[in-house]
Design a binder for these strands. Structure first.
Lengths: 222, 222
DNA sequence: TATGATAGTGTATATTATACACTAATAGTT
DNA sequence: AACTATTAGTGTATAATATACACTATCATA
């Protein structure tokens, strides 16, 4: 490969695309699955519309590091669990030119983890099932993300990243129900989830309102 | 975004990376899981070593289209089923400079589908479990590919892309065993696979050698 | 002590997975 | 014609898992 003029060893005609990341950041609040959206600030036809948090990868970053930075700077969110979702490479997906986006799933266990003051972009949480019309191809990304989340919650312990450190079994069940969009039998849910051996009884309880206190569980750290 | 000099609307400092695809192309031959490898032809420190079929995405291609072209030109392989695996964005993964690779899984049902004459690169099929030292980060890509293949074969019908149009149940079982690396009970395998309702009995049989002829099945087209 | 609200529990049945060994069909050989 | 070698093809009993289903327990308040 010939060295290009601008000190980048890769010839300029070969690096025609910009690389971006987009994070579909999920949170379950009061039994509703929500996603974090931010206003598009860059000057293009989608300016002002809502989109998943995202942006261009920097030259000294991996995609993951880029996700961390953008969540922090644009979203006010730090240190969350994430995993790669899919790479979108359609030629016309961005009006600014060729932009290939590596999409990620992000998981936050409580909206209070978001430091809204530090977010450089106006953000909003929306129900994952009614995000409205988003910028770019982000509705497609949303669909792929929800599909992946649904399939992963049934055969992995990914739910733990959507729960606070300690939680009741009813809370955990609500998270499953929010994601799968169906209600489950309480006894069967508890039997199954406890038989997986992932949970630990903290031996403490929490009182919510005037009801019987509920036992608090946490995920075992392995 | 400012327009760059070379008629690309994306500023040149932003498009610092080249985009590549790599395909981990699987085939099961005589009960062995194999992968297609090609010699590295481009002039870098890995020249002459083996790697998965791959190359740079062209400006007018999606990642998928790029995979199709590269499999055809470098591998002599056309019209195969493929799906996206993972995007590798480590900064130093390529000695030529920043190259981000979108990796794919490819599935070929018989090595005879490969037209070796048309392949511009010397290729070789190797056992997936002993590919030896590959160029770039391709050993890592191999590992991720095998892991994905193993998990997908147990909850999807992906095996069909590794089978010829018609096959015996023993052949299908050998494919499962090659991928999962464990032998299975013949009666239980048949019961389970038939109960999925994906297979159709062609009512024809095939004689292999001097043994009892075996019934030929095919996957239902839906 | 009665009420309202959520937490928490068990059992019977159905479905699915597993373990396991012999008979059937063919071609070639004796 | 019987025998052999080789793979195809089959059933049943048991274990494990999933499902359907309804009442009691605990608390705060009135």
């Amino acid at each position: 490969m010939k060295k290009s003029k601008d000190n980048n060893p890769i010839p300029v005609d070969i690096r025609f695309a910009a690389l971006a990341v987009d994070v579909v950041c999920f949170c379950v609040t009061e039994g509703k699955l929500e996603v974090l959206l931010g206003e598009v600030t860059s000057d293009n036809t989608f300016k002002g519309q809502l989109a998943h948090i995202g942006g261009l990868i920097h030259v000294d970053e991996t995609a993951e590091q880029s996700v961390d930075r953008l969540l922090r700077d644009k979203g006010g969110i730090q240190d969350i669990y994430k995993e790669q979702l899919y790479t979108f490479s359609e030629i016309d997906r961005d009006p600014r030119g060729r932009v290939v986006a590596v999409a990620y799933l992000g998981f936050i266990n409580s909206k209070s983890e978001q430091n809204v003051e530090k977010a450089k972009t106006p953000t909003v949480w929306k129900s994952a099932y009614s995000v409205g019309k988003l910028a770019y191809d982000h509705n497609k990304i949303t669909d792929v993300a929800i599909e992946r989340l649904r399939s992963k919650i049934i055969y992995t312990d990914i739910a733990k990243h959507l729960m606070p450190k300690e939680f009741t079994l009813s809370d955990l069940q609500k998270t499953y129900e929010a994601i799968l969009g169906e209600s489950m039998d309480k006894r069967n849910f508890r039997k199954r989830i406890l038989s997986l051996g992932l949970l630990k009884d903290t031996k403490r309880t929490i009182k919510k309102g005037v009801m019987r206190p509920a036992a608090l569980y946490c995920f075992k750290t392995q």
